[in-house]
Design a protein around this nucleic acid. Structure first.
Length: 377
DNA sequence: AATTCTAGCAACCGCACGTAC
DNA sequence: TGTACGTGCGGTTGCTAGAAT
């Protein structure tokens, strides 16, 4: 499949970008900059040439000055993006190699949607490329009913996450003792410690969860909504029918393992115990105990079934890393250096947004009679 | 041959951070 | 301390070629 939009590679111009190479007649949907309407849309080869020339002369950075000095009718962000993703030297073009794909999978399992960080591990590749690759991969695997990560990667990531969390915990405990010595509660409200203790007793961090294998947690992201989107209604009906055949046959062989996690929820109270939640389990606790379940705010469950690790919610982070204290600013945008793996977060999201309604309706299992109906209807 | 649908890609948008003033 | 600006990042959207029907 070839690229779309930009014709900068072969010099051809798309419909709305004729004649004027610098875009005088292009798409000016952008905001005005000093009265000059900025061009949007695909770059032309002429624009590329101008940008390359500019960077040669002035170097990278100060992108907003590009328009002033070069006459390009592009905003700084657009210039930066074009340079970073297409024009800068040493960019590797073409499909990812097997090694690169393997590396991306491993990196994603440990760091989540940190595309820029991942790109740093893949010389010549851009964050955008990796992001696109991953999103495509998700769709593909979702449709095929395959887990997002191979089992070996799952385990590795789990171990890595646990190691990471343990280090954090040790560090924070050490820091906590240090702080206690220093402060002896000087100025620190007791409620902070109470909350800390409460959160620690309520929820163990995920690797301590009993009876949950790494592979079962990893299966398709362990999203309660996963099975709802498993067979997207948007999917073309004919294609859906085609793939259902494949899926059902693969289910017959793999379902036992695949639904290991959900088997735990045959008995809801047992499930609650399994997660060490208060029980008898009240399916309505999401509304009754919003402070516990986080009200699903800012859920990282994406439409594509993936979990965004980029912006863990305050609750999510608090629940995952009860021994760490985060300020609100810490929780915005850039997380801690050792960000929780998406695998961990998957379970976390599940815990925060427990299934409501009947077990059968949200946790299909081979023993739930409605399963096949759900897939075939 | 025409139409529909999907995959892949490029680019945009909004948000957050860092820094200078 | 507050604000503006530049930059980086992640999510999303729109477009097109090619495959499927």
């Amino acid at each position: 499949m070839s690229h779309a939009g930009s014709e900068s590679e072969d010099g051809m111009l798309s419909n709305n970008q004729t004649e004027s190479p610098l875009g005088e007649e292009g798409n000016y949907g952008g905001s005005a900059n000093g009265g000059v309407a900025l061009k949007k849309g695909p770059w032309t080869s002429a624009e590329d040439a101008v940008l390359i020339e500019y960077v040669k002369k002035h170097g990278e950075g100060n992108w907003n000055a590009v328009q002033k000095h070069s006459g390009l009718f592009r905003c700084g962000k657009s210039c930066r993006l074009r340079w970073a993703n297409h024009l800068r030297p040493n960019l590797k073009k073409g499909a990812f190699t097997q090694e690169e794909e393997q590396l991306i999978i491993q990196l994603h399992a440990t760091m989540g949607n940190k595309w820029a960080q991942m790109a740093a591990h893949l010389p010549g590749r851009t964050d955008n490329e990796i992001k696109n690759y991953w999103n495509t991969r998700i769709k593909r695997r979702q449709r095929a009913g395959l887990p997002l990560y191979p089992p070996e990667v799952s385990l590795q990531a789990m171990q890595e996450s646990q190691r990471c969390l343990n280090i954090d915990r040790i560090e924070s405990e050490h820091k906590s003792q240090h702080d206690t010595l220093l402060s002896k509660n000087y100025g620190i409200p007791n409620i902070m410690f109470d909350n800390l203790k409460a959160s620690q007793s309520i929820l163990p961090y995920v690797p301590e969860l009993r009876d949950i294998t790494a592979s079962s947690m990893l299966m398709k992201g362990v999203s309660s909504s996963q099975y709802g989107s498993f067979m997207s209604p948007i999917m073309h009906r004919q294609k859906r029918l085609r793939e259902e055949t494949t899926l059902l046959s693969s289910f017959s062989g793999g379902m036992k393992n695949e639904f290991h996690l959900f088997d735990q929820f045959q008995d809801v109270n047992k499930a609650a115990q399994s997660f060490e939640l208060p029980f008898p389990f009240d399916p309505d606790s999401t509304t009754k105990n919003p402070e516990f379940f986080g009200e699903n705010q800012g859920s990282h469950t994406l439409a594509n079934g993936n979990f965004s690790a980029s912006k863990p919610t305050a609750e999510a982070v608090k629940l995952e890393l009860p021994s760490l204290q985060y300020s609100e600013t810490d929780l915005g945008g850039r997380g801690p250096s050792c960000s929780p793996s998406p695998l961990i977060e998957s379970v976390d999201t599940f815990i925060q947004s427990p299934p409501t309604g009947t077990v059968e309706s949200v946790c299909p299992s081979p023993r739930n009679s409605g399963l096949l109906d759900a897939f075939t209807s």
